[in-house]
Amino acid sequence: MSISREEVEKVSLLGRLLLGPGELEKMTSQMGQILDYMHLLSEVDTENVEPMAHALDLTNVLRDDTPGVSLPRDEALAAAPHRDDECFLVPAVLGDP
């Protein structure tokens, strides 16, 4: 098995997920299986191969620096689960819980 339960738990924090004990067990075994399969790639000689992050040769696309219409604040806030007139609201980050 190429990944431990502790590692899976740590990754779940990095990925901002919360896995229950049963889920954690299953995820550990399934990720292990999937990551084992990925090791197939280790047989490929990639010495001197440029990584390819994208199918196109991307170039910067620029537009004229003229202000256009932006999404009005009220529309941008319209789908927020918790908001006031100006801001998205989230649980307090600072101070003692």
């Binding site: 924090l13 990925g15 901002r16 997920l17 919360l18 889920e23 990720m31 990551l35």
Partner: peptide, 21 residues
């Protein structure tokens, strides 16, 4: 974490986990 645990299904969670790892 709770929001995402409730909002995503099993396959989406698997992919987030593999990608994050």
């Amino acid at each position: 974490r709770r929001t995402r645990a409730e909002g995503f299904g099993a396959e989406v969670k698997r992919r987030i986990m593999i990608g994050t790892y």
